[in-house]
């Protein structure tokens, strides 16, 4: 997996102009991402019990997750979907390594990691403004929540990839995925009715950003952590089973 990731990183750095353009764009989008925050802080109103700087922590968590998605998962999904459509997944399946893991590191956009730095800095600044110094236990719970968050993200990503075995040209699904992920900028409490059900049971946005942020500001307990980890693990298991079924039905492409 590390070797494939290294190759993907080499491919990302192969073209100088493209590489630096990506960098400039990444900085630009990270700065643009701050604008709504200034608006929120300016109003200083609480959103479903989350104060402005608590929302900032949530935004930091969102930026970190979005960074993982943009740097690792999204490019890998697009590349792997192209492999499936063109039949070049053959060469991935022929390698004596876990084909799913190879697919999940098939491509890499390093500049999107800037958002991770941005998110971590935002979390640190916001916690400082809140006067919160997370205890070791809270940091542990937050890290566990982060793990569950990434597990959910990858579980959903793998399920999307499995879909592309049956229906070609689903690259746009990854953009829909990104748009849905955007809802996790907000605490799960803001959603009502169908949207709440959707973002709790189908796309567990609460696990992905709300819980990690809550853990950092000392609002989550071990029970919440256990449920988050269970959700992440369950999604990964389901995704892995779907992958096995999908590969079994792989038809390659004609010569």
């Amino acid at each position: 997996m590390a070797a494939q990731l290294r190759l993907s990183a080499l491919a990302a750095a192969q073209y100088r102009v493209g590489f630096w353009t990506e960098g400039v764009l990444a900085v630009f989008w990270s700065l643009v991402g701050i604008v709504p925050l200034w608006v929120a802080i300016d109003h200083r109103g609480a959103v479903v019990g989350w104060g402005p700087w608590e929302l900032m922590v949530l935004t930091g968590c969102f930026a970190a997750l979005s960074s993982v998605f943009g740097a690792f998962l999204q490019p890998a999904l697009i590349e792997s979907m192209n492999h499936i459509r063109r039949g070049t997944l053959d060469h991935v399946l022929l390698r004596p390594a876990d084909s799913l893991l190879l697919c999940l590191v098939a491509a890499f956009s390093p500049w999107r990691l800037l958002e991770l730095v941005f998110g971590l800095v935002l979390i640190a600044l916001s916690l400082a403004r809140l006067g919160v110094t997370p205890e070791l236990a809270s940091v542990g719970v937050a890290l566990g929540m982060g793990l569950a968050s990434v597990a959910c993200l990858y579980g959903l990503g793998i399920l999307t990839l499995c879909l592309s075995f049956r229906a070609m040209q689903l690259q746009n699904l990854t953009y829909l995925f990104e748009a849905l992920l955007d809802f996790s900028r907000w605490p799960i409490g803001v959603f009502r009715g169908l949207l709440k059900a959707l973002f709790t049971f189908v796309i567990p946005l609460a696990v992905m950003t709300t819980y990690p942020a809550a853990a950092l500001i000392g609002r989550a307990d071990v029970t919440t952590l256990a449920s988050a980890l269970l959700t992440g693990a369950a999604l990964l298991v389901v995704a892995r089973l779907c992958w096995q079924v999908a590969v079994r039905g792989y038809t390659s492409a004609s010569s």
Partner: peptide, 29 residues
């Protein structure tokens, strides 16, 4: 113990020198 070479498909990374794919295979195999 096997290998499949296809004239119409490639395993080499398109944008990189072939030696990078060789190195990947060294690790994977």
């Amino acid at each position: 113990s096997i290998s499949l070479v296809m004239g119409h498909k490639r395993q080499l990374s398109w944008d990189l020198p072939a030696v990078d794919t060789f190195e990947l295979n060294r690790v994977i195999y």
